[in-house]
């Protein structure tokens, strides 16, 4: 393993340790205190508001749309025409607020309905990474912290595998995965989720090892509590905070990476389902961007704002957990 990979690991472990630092104030749990600090942070409020609106649109989407988002040629009577073999796409107007797409579908309706699919891609991909990563990291962390000599061996084997994944450029990992599976929305979610597995695994393992030296663990051990119970109901709940912070940040990158895969032609081939990443890739296809920039612009703005929301909230959460950054 290179020293650089070690630096990467050291960074993740530092984040993991932060959660192990106990607050000195009496009577406040780590969670409640962190929540308090998040609420005082203006960028957290901005991020949370953006996400609130986004989630609201994702949930209520189908009830808000003026047109059927899947209906091809809804706008043809309103001016979608072909000039010299080139389709002219009407931009934003009073009838279609965000214009029409390359198949004459209402962009506004597709943006609204697409919010749900986009959220789904982000959430499912992150969930896949979180589950797999936490499974590997949790086993490794528990084995290292409580398992003695044999535990260290288990930890060692698992971590060498994780380090190998960590050493690969992320897009490359995704490309090779999509090549194996058939391109579909699910494949995209699996590939994007898989990228984040090593990060989650490293984080949870680091946090659990840091926790396993805590006094309450020693107390539980001396009381004769079963090791599995110590790991699951004592160490794990106290180690999960940095993982949740990372999950928030991963939601942002997942949406962006999924859009990148769509752009490379590895995305969902079925464009009847509106999803911002696919719409963005469609809008840039065949130099459509030069004569109908609105096709790509609106999905891009949607993705950027959503990613900003997740990033702002995630970084505020990280600051709240980091005692070094406390004012």
């Amino acid at each position: 393993m290179t020293a650089l990979a070690r630096k990467k690991i050291a960074k993740l472990e530092r984040l993991a340790e932060l959660a192990a630092v106990h607050s000195k104030e009496q009577g406040e749990s780590l969670w409640r205190e962190a929540l308090k600090r998040v609420r005082r942070n203006p960028s957290a409020i901005v991020g949370a508001s953006i996400l609130g609106v986004f989630i609201l649109i994702a949930v209520l989407g189908p009830f808000l749309v003026p047109y059927d988002p899947g209906q091809i040629g809804v706008g043809i009577p309103f001016g979608l025409e072909v000039k010299e073999g080139q389709a002219i796409y009407p931009g934003p107007n009073s009838e279609f607020w965000l214009g029409l797409d390359h198949q004459g579908r209402d962009m506004f309706s597709r943006m609204i309905v697409g919010a749900r699919q986009t959220l789904l891609v982000g959430v499912v991909a992150t969930a896949i990474g979180l589950t797999l990563g936490c499974l590997i990291g949790g086993i490794a962390g528990a084995a290292y912290g409580l398992g003695g000599k044999r535990g260290r061996t288990i930890d060692n084997v698992l971590m060498r595998f994780i380090d190998m994944l960590l050493a690969m450029p992320s897009l490359l990992l995704a490309i090779s995965l999509v090549a194996l599976l058939r391109p579909s929305l699910m494949t995209v979610m699996i590939a994007v989720g898989f990228i984040s597995v090593p990060i989650f695994a490293r984080l949870l393992r680091g946090a659990m090892i840091a926790q396993s030296n805590a006094e309450y663990v020693v107390a539980a051990t001396s009381l004769g509590v079963h090791k599995r119970k110590i790991a699951l109901s004592h160490i794990l709940p106290n180690s999960i905070a940095p993982v949740l912070v990372q999950a928030t940040l991963t939601l942002a990158t997942a949406i962006i990476e999924a859009a990148g895969l769509s752009f490379l032609g590895l995305g969902n081939p079925d464009s009847s389902q509106a999803e911002w990443g696919t719409m963005l890739a469609d809008g840039l296809f065949n130099s459509r961007f030069d004569y109908a920039p609105h096709l790509a612009l609106f999905p891009a703005i949607g993705i950027i704002i959503t990613a900003l929301g997740f990033t702002l909230l995630g970084e505020a959460m990280r600051e709240a957990l980091d005692p070094k950054l406390r004012k």
């Binding site: 962006i256 990148g260 840039l284 030069d290 891009a300 900003l308 990033t311």
Partner: peptide, 22 residues
């Protein structure tokens, strides 16, 4: 820098190209 991290890089490329080249 926060916005730059959140822009899909290929879209940024098209944007820069459309403005400064086209």
């Amino acid at each position: 820098s926060l916005v730059a991290i959140c822009i899909p890089i290929f879209f940024l490329g098209y944007l820069i190209k459309a403005v400064f080249a086209v």
